[in-house]
Design a protein around this nucleic acid. Structure first.
Lengths: 220, 220
DNA sequence: TAAATTTTAATTGTATACATTTTTTGTTTT
DNA sequence: AAAACAAAAAATGTATACAATTAAAATTTA
């Protein structure tokens, strides 16, 4: 029997601090534009400044936090202009992902991603109850595609871009877009399995643009 | 008269440590695969472990260093497989850059990039003497293109990818490719100025692939 | 001798004290 | 009252001591 992946009960303080902070930012608990000091976080989380510093630096690197010269760190803003820039990069990298997958000779193992798609379909039946879970599965779908390319640069860069997108998506109340998402995902997956890179890219581009358009009305 | 950019005599220890380390890695002074401990670096650079730690973590985020579970940090390897993955991402982002520039209505200020191109042309006359400077100007050309898009995500992601590429380029002895580089750069710039996104992308893709191919023979 | 176990050494993780820089506040001066 | 300056407070930067984890070495046991 295969070894199941260990559940991380508690890693280093630095990692747990990072996870907690990131979650708060993506949740919008830490509102964009608000400033955060290391000391404050340290007191609030009950750890020393050392792990807080590491976590803040990593988030800075990922673009979720920005430093103002002598002022400290502030949570990045979510403007319409930023949204456009973010999605330009995302579209490019997501399309590369599916192009690579549709072009590869050796057929990758699609079992996990098939599972995600079917889970999403089930969730969509009661979307009022499961919207946040639906969003998580959505992120998983895109992540798994990247993982299947076995290109670690692509995986990590796309993850950063998607994390930034997640903040916008969490700001959009409920989405009538859910049905279309599943349709797009199915089409994308089919195009990949057919070994049709052009179609896969076209479908993915349409999907990303559709997502962007659904966010626009809620952005200043 | 415009304010000239200040030369950074000395920033924080953390930043200077980062710069020094990064330079050593890109130079291949720190050979790929070699392990580096914080204490060792600390002693060698004459600073405490605190700034070293920050610098190492940042380099880790950028992909120049990898952590082996309990072993410490090692400088990332430069394999043929990695090269291909790196250049897949680079091609995608560089093409996005020129597409954006060629599609924008308001004509950006090309004065700086024109200057870089002409500097490169001069340098190419005595390439034996100026090869490393030529490489730096080359990086500047690509960076300035990204900057002109005003897309900060694109700028930073491309910078990380290019830094990784720089290590490969420094491993290639002397390149007969120099003349072609300038030709490609001129063509790319012209296509952008003509407002022809398709041509700009085609030229850029050809340029990036040409660069990759010139590295391949020197890669294991 | 080979495997297992304990012990030691080395390395990273964390807390804390202090230094330095920057911002803000308060005072003085014109 | 406005501007300039000085003092205080707050924030990040840095060094260092200690804790915890992990790898390597030495020892024991079968």
């Amino acid at each position: 029997m295969n070894r199941l992946p260990q559940i991380k009960i508690q890693g280093t303080l630095y990692n747990r601090t990072y996870d907690a902070l990131k979650k708060s930012i993506l949740n919008l608990d830490l509102v964009p534009g608000s400033s955060i000091t290391e000391e404050e976080l340290s007191a609030q989380l009950g750890v020393s400044r050392t792990p807080v510093r590491s976590a803040v630096q990593k988030l800075m690197f990922e673009g979720l936090i920005k430093t103002v010269p002598g002022k400290g760190a502030i949570v990045s803003e979510l403007t319409l202009e930023q949204l456009k820039k973010l999605f330009d990069v995302r579209e490019s990298l997501e399309c590369l992902t599916v192009k690579l997958l549709a072009s590869v000779e050796s057929r990758p193992d699609f079992s996990k991603i098939d599972q995600i798609l079917s889970d999403q379909t089930v969730l969509s039946k009661n979307i009022e109850l499961n919207f946040s879970k639906f969003l998580r599965e959505d992120a998983e779908f895109h992540k798994e595609l990247a993982v299947l390319t076995e290109n670690e640069f692509l995986v990590s860069q796309l993850e950063h871009v998607r994390d930034n997108c997640a903040r916008y998506l969490n700001a959009v109340p409920f989405s009538e877009r859910v049905g279309r998402v599943i349709g797009f995902h199915a089409d994308i997956l089919q195009a990949i399995k057919e070994g049709n890179p052009e179609k896969a890219q076209r479908m993915m581009a349409a999907h990303i643009i559709d997502t962007k358009e659904s966010i626009v009305p809620y952005t200043k």
